[in-house]
Structure formats: structure tokens, C-alpha cells
Amino acid sequence: MALKIPAALLDQLRRHGEQTYPYECCGVLVGEFDSAGRKTVKAVVPCGNTRTDSPQNRYHIDPSELVRIQREAMLAGSDIAGFYHSHPDHPAQWSVTDLAEAHWTGCSYVITSVENGRAVLTNSFQLQDQVKDKDFENEVIEVSN
């Protein structure tokens, strides 16, 4: 699996993680799926983190924002292709919580580690719908100009 994203958009989502540090940022990746299920990101839509009770290690996107983004993406001929969030002072690796709370099968979940306020690593994982249990699969990020 692969996630194609222009460098400027990758930079945008990484900067978002720096802006919200030491709290987690989150947002939506709007893009297109090809016939093989590969995704190309066309826009990054920053969202607010509603988990004000624990924003340093949890995120949640207001579903009303998702409804609006989904509607606007579909009107533009695109789709929600994935999501992103940051891990402040923590590796860019999905957590048990990330998997438990992930429900968008086939979509990308992009995670950026932010250490001391600076974005370090960004990784992507595609949510797979296994027969009994869902799982994350490592995904290559292909950066374009």
C-alpha cells in the first residue's frame, strides 16, 4: 500500500503537530483512491481536538466536522482518504488506543512524532479489515513535488 502526498501538504500536517505541541493535533486527508486502493492526498484539513480532558495523549475529531469535510470532498469529486495526528514526545507508531478507535477501513492513519516541539518522523498505516479483527498495515509515504 502507498500514500502519495505532495511535499507541501506533508509539511503542513507536520507543522500542525508542532503548533499544537505538547498536545496532539488531528485532521483529515482528502484525496482520491485509484482502482488498486492507493491514495493520493489532494488537501489536508486541520481539525480541532475535542479531547480537552487529555489533549497531550488523546485526540478526537468532532463528527460534525467529518460530516462537513466528507460532504465538501464528495462535491469536489474527492473522498476522505485518511487522517493524521501527532504523538508529542512519543514514537510515530500506532498505539493500542489508535487501533481500538480506528474504524475507517482502507484509509490511511498518518502519525507524526513531535519531540520537544519539533516534528521528527512521520509514518502512515492503513487500517485493514481482517476476518475477525482489524489491524494496521505499514504503508509507504510517496512524497511528490
Binding site: Y59, H60, P63, D98, E101
Partner: peptide, 13 residues
């Protein structure tokens, strides 16, 4: 009217 179905998006380290 339009009905929209949206699975939740959440997580954290």
C-alpha cells in the same frame, strides 16, 4: 434531506 454516516475518528499515544 441527506443522511450522512460517519464512523468516529479518535485515538492517541
Amino acid at each position: 434531506d441527506t443522511i450522512a454516516i460517519v464512523p468516529s475518528v479518535a485515538g492517541g499515544r
